[in-house]
Amino acid sequence: MFSFVISYLNFLKYIPLFPHVFDSLLRVWVLVTKPKLLNWLDEIEGEVLNWQGTNVSIHKYGGLQFNYRGTEIGHIHSNGLLDVLYTLKIKEVLLKTGRVSNHHVFAKSGWISFYIKRTEDKKYALELLWLKYQDIHGGNTESHRVYLVDYQNAITLCEPLYFPLLSSVRLLLEI
């Protein structure tokens, strides 16, 4: 259903409120078919809001958007589809993990998509958001420059929770 609308009715997103209503109806569908997913979204929201300087808003095409001081970290549509924008280099590395895919619309951009389907996906979604958060959060600091140059150093800046993803990014960059 979601894929059909995105593939064939994508132009409707330019009608004011249409994507938001579509997202609301998706939420009703999820509530009936997979209510746990909405709890996971609440938990992700709660966790991200614990990060310094973050807030949430409604994404322009429907869904929950996470921001850090006015810059988008990523957004989750109500069917559990997480979209995050990285640099093409980071995206390439993430694609090699096999867990994320090209963005469902902008395949050639730095955007990636990740479907939250199981409980363990919630943690991975948080890792993806954390990775982006680190990218923006540390943008003007010395540690961030180190992070961009050497992912090994970046890992030491992160919470243990987010270690696995950053670790895999580092390993894949080295390959």
Binding site: H20, F22, D23, S24, R27, V28, N55, I58
Partner: peptide, 21 residues
Amino acid sequence: SPLIFGFMITGAFTGRAMFKK
């Protein structure tokens, strides 16, 4: 009903974001 459900839920979540800010 799809219009009513869709816009009411959208309104509720928009309101939630508005009042949080």
